[in-house]
Simulated assay, not measured.
Amino acid sequence: MASEQMVHMSQGQGETSYARNSSFQKAEQNRMKSLIEAVIADLCGSSSTLLHGKVVIADLGCSSGPNALALVSTAINAIHSQCLHLQQPPPEVCVLLNDLPDNDFNTVVKSLVTLRQSKDPVVLTGVIPGSFYERLFTSDSLHLVCASNSLQWLSKAPEDLTRNRIPAFDTDEHVRHERLPIVREAYAHQFREDFTLFLQLRAKELVSGGRMVISLVGTRSNVIASKFFLFPGIVAQILSVMVTEGVIDKEKFDSFYVPVHGPSGEEVREIIEEEGSFSIREMRVHDPTTEMNTALSTPRKFVNNLRALFEPIIVQHFGDIMDEFVRTAELHWSLDPDGSLQEERARTSRATLVVSLAKVS
């Protein structure tokens, strides 16, 4: 079962680190740019009385590496441009970056120092370690919250599966196919609980009229077009081969759950509307096929992307099996005897969901 402490990306600056293998996530952040700029135009508009000379921006799930400051930098640059256009002095800016305690905050802090030195309005920066499924900030203190490529990560594995010892991915294909609706529903239920809580918490922390821009990896519709959510499913396939080879124990494999759910746009919209704290200003659904194909285009890229995302979870659950995992993954990519990986890449309904929200006053 996953815990908060194990859900973090591979640290450092090495070949298999998240910092070196996050081009897909960078593309997602680029898709958020215009929505963040539109939010800043609203917040800093000539008729706005929301800021009172200061703006507090928080990025939740910032991770580390070159993407850690991308969203807040977009917001700061937009503040510069908007104030220049209106010929008014920029507000004081506070930038706060959040991720789980095991995140590589050493690299993040160095980046924040550089940000403060290069951006005149930034007068305060800080890191906030902790889960965004708990309170992080004081009430009515934030003006803008951003979260990119993080909300598909759940607070924990679905209890309906762990409590009843139902594997998320059975090595028997027939059993796996029969259980797929049960597994999918358990993950969807956990996502509903977590995302509802996330909205409730942020509603307390944002000022009246405050804004959020979020993106997450999801699916195009509620129809299950694929046998599994692509990347966690590929990891499970590789590990299942290692079970058949006797490298890892089947009982250990059956208790392995990746706490990730790719919701549909319909799921996200329904939860936001039911929770009621936010109105949806805009929702976009993007096709990430180009970036996904790039991430899987060679054995090295394929393995490095998997390791950047999942190595900490794999090692905590199974121990140091990464040499065998890499060997099996490379064979999985290069041989792919039944075409299953290529089939999933072609049939996946994976999508990037980008949503701009306003707190209901």
Rank of each mutant, 00 (worst) to 15 (best):
D59R: 04
N67I: 03
V72W: 00
G61H: 02
G53S: 03
R31N: 13
G65A: 08
K54T: 13
S64D: 10
I40D: 01
G45H: 05
S46I: 10
C44W: 10
L71F: 02
D42Y: 08
S47P: 02
L71K: 05
V55E: 03
P66I: 04
S73G: 09
D42S: 15
C44V: 07
D59E: 09
R31F: 09
L69S: 08
A68R: 03
L51V: 14
C44I: 08
L43I: 01
G45W: 11
L43T: 04
L35F: 11
V55N: 08
S34I: 14
H52A: 12
C62T: 14
L50K: 14
P66M: 07
S63R: 00
V72S: 12
S73A: 11
C62E: 02
I40T: 05
N67K: 03
T49K: 12
A70W: 12
A41G: 09
L69M: 13
L60P: 02
I57S: 07
A68I: 02
I57H: 00
N67Y: 00
K54F: 09
V72F: 04
V55H: 07
L35P: 12
A70F: 15
L51Q: 06
K54P: 06
A68K: 04
H52V: 11
I36K: 08
A58C: 06
G61M: 01
A41L: 14
A38N: 11
D42N: 15
G45T: 07
V56S: 06
V39I: 10
A70P: 07
A38C: 08
C44N: 01
L69V: 01
A41C: 10
S47M: 10
V39N: 12
T49P: 04
G45N: 06
L51G: 04
V56T: 12
V56G: 00
K33F: 05
R31H: 14
S46K: 11
S64Q: 10
A58T: 00
L71T: 06
M32C: 13
S47T: 15
G45M: 06
I57C: 05
D42L: 15
L71S: 09
A38D: 15
S73M: 13
N67H: 00
H52D: 13
S63V: 03
S73I: 04
G45K: 06
D42A: 14
S34R: 15
L50W: 05
A70Y: 13
T49G: 12
P66S: 05
V55G: 03
A58V: 06
P66D: 06
S63P: 04
A38S: 09
R31K: 13
L60G: 03
C44P: 02
G65Y: 09
A68N: 13
L60I: 12
S48F: 05
S63G: 04
S48A: 01
L71C: 11
L69E: 07
